[in-house]
Design a protein around this nucleic acid. Structure first.
Length: 499
RNA sequence: UGCGGGGUAGAGCAGUCUGGUAGCUCGUCAGGCUCAUAACCUGAAGGUCGCAGGUUCGAAUCCUGUCCCCGCUACCA
């Protein structure tokens, strides 16, 4: 949910910038866990997967995320293409049938690694029975063959994995050497069968990795899906949780190399949310579940929810703490006191002094300028830093640059004191110009904040009669887009929330 | 065990590479203003920069030791 919201902000920003965006999310539905849990519940794995996926999508719909496609790894289209890709890899010898040997826990039906077996003193942690040396046939992906190419890749693309600390983490593990990885198992059946050897089922994680390209139809080059969507590969970003970094940063690029496909530009691995200083757990009562999210949405609204998780979330290397008090403080400080109050005071003055009619910023045909406040220039600077921050997925940095701009409007109002000029009729042109410049800056800021708080920013533009059309980003954010003479209503975007 | 990151005001962080008045956001306090949602603006208080040594005229910054926290240590999705 968090991950998808981040992508949503990025996708919206990129659409504003005029890029042709394909934003993909979905559900990973295969695996032993699903199979076991289905057995326990007395339903088929497919039924359980359907239920889980539907639930996930219903949650998604609440958040109005703008993904262009929702892929399910149980889609026949996905399954078919995964088998096609695996067949190709088999033909090329990148996947081979090998023997896996290890310490097997007969009670638990699972293998332990050499190190973990030693830690357990070669006994089952559950039953206490000795582990047995056992072996089975598995299909392996020849990861070891890609050691050198992956190392070169990392040397040449220092931004392949972000944040930087994750890049270094992977690099460290890379130095320990790559071994071939098993990609199939025979002890469960809920998954995609290996082509031509149906006893084997492809491991969930490798099946799931392919979603990025099966959603684009790359595994079926004759399909219309592929014709329509192949232009979207390679992806600009794969945004993932840190727990699946290794697969995305090493195995996935190696698989793509084997298939001679281009690699994604960047894999961004975020960290985890903790809650009120502790790891989330249901028994602790600090689990952020749907019910809790709902109560936040009800109290603060969806935009506030997005604003909080995007600006305070664990996009960096360390986990972030979800704290109710911080949520409220941030909401009041940024959304109520800054965005809400500033838009309110500006629209209120236009209402009070000009009957709601926006005045021109000119006098005798020339722009009225105020020392130290070159708004067209300030806006341009903000747009530039916003753009580069957004493009590099520094979402909170992009947002902060806009907040700085809005705070400066507050400074401007305090220094030029339009409410004093209002008492002097000869100053009417200046008064009108000040308010024009404030409102125009806020209009531009509202476009920049649109990716995070779309509902409120749209509401704002509607009430100042400055709805965006389908002009280019450059045109929409150009100074002077606001026309003199339009009618403005006083706004109150974010209601104050107190305990 | 090994590799990597971190410990700076009440909270969250920047500064460390390229030594030289310790900075930002929020909170607290005081003043200003009154257009605005008890808001906004200005200013102040608050820190032995994990601990102990060393180098230097001078160390948050460089070196050594030490304590604590976190991530990774693959076949687990």
């Amino acid at each position: 949910m968090y991950t998808t919201t981040l992508c949503d902000v990025y996708a919206r920003a990129m659409r504003w910038l005029g890029h042709d965006v394909f934003f993909l999310t979905g559900t990973d539905e295969h695996g032993v866990k699903v199979e076991q849990s289905a057995i326990e519940k007395g339903v088929s794995p497919q039924e359980l997967a359907d239920k889980n996926s539907a639930e996930f999508r219903s949650i998604m719909s609440i958040f109005e995320l703008t993904n262009d496609e929702f892929i399910r790894t149980t889609d026949p289209e996905h399954t078919k293409q995964v088998q096609a890709f695996v067949s190709t890899l088999l033909e090329r010898g990148d996947i081979y049938l090998g023997t896996f040997e290890g310490w097997y826990d007969e009670g638990q039906e699972e293998y332990h690694t050499e190190t973990s077996a030693r830690d357990l003193q070669y006994k089952s942690p559950i039953s206490g029975k000795p582990l047995v040396r056992s072996s089975e046939k598995n299909y392996y992906f020849k990861l070891s063959a890609y050691q050198e190419r992956i190392e070169t890749l990392f040397a040449e693309q220092p931004n392949l994995v972000r944040p930087e600390s994750r890049f270094n983490e992977v690099l460290g593990r890379l130095r320990e050497g790559l071994q071939d990885v098993p990609i199939s198992r025979t002890n469960f059946s809920w998954g995609i069968p290996m082509p031509s050897d149906e006893e084997h089922v492809i491991y969930v994680w490798i099946d799931a990795l392919f979603n990025y390209i099966t959603a684009l139809g790359l595994g079926d080059s004759e399909s219309t899906l592929c014709k329509d969507r192949e232009k979207y590969w390679p992806a600009a970003y794969h945004v993932i949780g840190k727990e699946i970094l290794w697969f995305h940063a090493v195995i996935w690029p190696a698989v793509l190399m084997a298939l001679e496909l281009p690699l994604p530009n960047c894999i961004f691995a975020h960290s985890f949310w903790i809650s009120e200083g502790k790891k989330m757990s249901k028994s602790m009562g600090n689990f952020i579940d749907l019910e809790m999210i709902d109560s936040y949405l009800e109290t603060y609204g969806m935009d506030a929810w997005r604003y909080y998780i995007v600006t305070q979330g664990p996009l960096g290397a360390s986990d972030a703490d979800f704290v109710a008090e911080t949520f409220q403080d941030l909401y009041n400080a940024h959304l109520v006191n800054t965005v809400g109050n500033c838009t309110s005071r500006v629209t209120a003055m236009i209402g009070k002094y000009f009957n709601g009619e926006v005045q021109p910023e000119t006098k005798d045909g020339a722009r009225i300028v105020f020392d130290g406040f070159d708004w067209p220039e300030k806006c341009k600077t903000t747009i530039h830093s916003w753009t580069s921050s957004m493009e590099s997925f520094s979402l909170s940095q992009a947002i902060e640059s806009v907040m700085v701009l809005i705070r400066e409007v507050d400074v401007f109002i305090n220094e030029t004191a339009p409410f004093k000029l209002a008492k002097d009729e000869s100053k009417t042109p200046e008064l009108g110009a000040i308010l024009y410049q404030c409102l125009e800056t806020l209009r531009i800021a509202s476009i920049l904040l649109d990716p995070v708080i779309p509902i409120k920013m749209n509401e704002f533009r509607t009430s100042i009669c400055a709805e965006t059309t389908n002009h280019t980003f450059e045109k929409e954010t150009a100074w002077g887009g606001l026309e003199a003479g339009i009618k403005v209503e006083k706004v109150a975007l974010f209601p104050r929330v107190t305990h």
